[in-house]
Every structure is written in C-alpha cells, then in structure tokens.
C-alpha cells in the first residue's frame, strides 16, 4: 500500500518514530535512527530531492523494514509485550487509587472502551505520527464513548472479571527494566550532560 501524499520531513520523522516505538525499538535506538534519518533528509533537500526520494512512497513500510533490520522480532515482541503490560498495570493502579479500592471490576464497557481507544490511537499514530494530548483526549471522548454506547446497546454492562490490586505491580514488573533503561538513556543524551 503506498502513501502518495507529499509529506514534509517532520511528518516523515513523526510516522517513523511512531512505527519504531510500536514495533518495539528501544528509545535510544529510536533517537539514533531519527537523528540519522533527519540528517539524511536535510542533505537530500539541500541537494534538491524530496522526502519521498529518501523513504519511498510508503513511509510505514520503510520504517518497518528498518525496524526489522535493527532488532530481531523476538526481542521487539518481548519489549512491546512488556510495555503493553506496563501500561495496563498503570491503568489498574490508577483506577484502584482513584476509587480507593483494592480490586478493579472489569466490565464489558471497560474492555470496549480501551480496545477501541487503543486501536484508533495505534492506527492513527502508525499513519500520521504521535496524536498528542489534545487529540488523544478527543479520541477517548469520541471513539471510546461510541464503543461504550454500542456495547451497552448490544449486551448491557456485564461484569467480566475482577482484578486484584496486586495484579498492577505484577504487570508493571516486566516493563520496569525497559522504563528504567529509557530514563537513564534520556538523562545521558539530555543537553548539558556529558
């Protein structure tokens, strides 16, 4: 599938960043790849060429092929799975804290809401780059609400299962080493840090 729109350098970099993050490339490697691609795009523009001359017609396919070459699939899959669990862990922790309860009842509405929000967010970000906070909230409001309304209309607000509070740290744990490594990596590459 090709993307025939004319994209700017920034749009190309945004799509590549999202694709690499979702494909399990670690933060440090994403920064390195973005630096390299950004420099090449600037050189190409200075030489009278377009971003499409660099990345081809399909930016997503370009990003995917570089991701596949950069790190083997099992390692990327492991990282993505750990980060997904990390996010779910935080969601459980946050909702338990907000409701001041030691367990979280998961209903059909919850699954529908988060599944649709996640699907729309990932699909958008793979094609256009990061949504940003404003658009993310808009997606949650519009798509998420629509999903909840549809699920209630179809089957009602049934409870599926209950998650205890201890499930949160259990889900956070696999993603913790990656999160710590990324924080350290960001500190190392921060301006003014040698």
């Amino acid at each position: 599938m090709t993307d025939r729109r004319t994209m700017t350098n920034q749009q190309v970099l945004a799509v590549c960043r999202s694709n690499w993050e979702y494909r399990g490339i670690d933060d440090g490697s994403v920064r390195e790849m973005l630096d390299e691609l950004s420099a090449h795009l600037e050189d190409a523009v200075a030489a009278g060429r377009t971003p499409q001359d660099v990345v081809g017609d399909d930016v997503k396919e370009f990003a995917a092929s570089w991701a596949r070459a950069r790190a083997p699939f099992p390692r990327r899959l492991l990282r993505t799975a750990a980060m997904v669990c990390f996010v779910i862990g935080w969601l459980i922790l946050a909702t338990c804290l907000l409701r001041w309860t030691t367990e979280r009842v998961v209903s059909v509405d919850d699954v529908a809401f988060w599944a649709v929000v996640a699907a729309v967010t990932v699909a958008w970000e793979l094609r256009r780059g990061s949504l940003g906070l404003g658009r993310s909230l808009a997606v949650a409001l519009v798509a998420g609400s629509a999903a909840v309304l549809l699920s209630r209309w179809l089957g009602g607000d049934g409870e599926l299962f209950t998650l205890p509070l201890w499930a949160a740290p259990a889900l956070l744990l696999p993603g913790l080493p990656y999160a710590v490594a990324e924080m350290r990596g960001r500190k190392r590459t921060a301006p003014g840090v040698d």
Binding site: H40, D53, V54, G56, F62, W66, R68, A69
Partner: peptide, 13 residues
C-alpha cells in the same frame, strides 16, 4: 537507488 533510505535497513543488518 529507487529510494535512498533503503541503505539504512541494509546498514543495520
């Protein structure tokens, strides 16, 4: 090259 960026996956490999 059809697309210049095709060298990067190869360099990564």
């Amino acid at each position: 090259l059809v697309s210049e960026g095709s060298i990067y996956p190869l360099l990564a490999r």
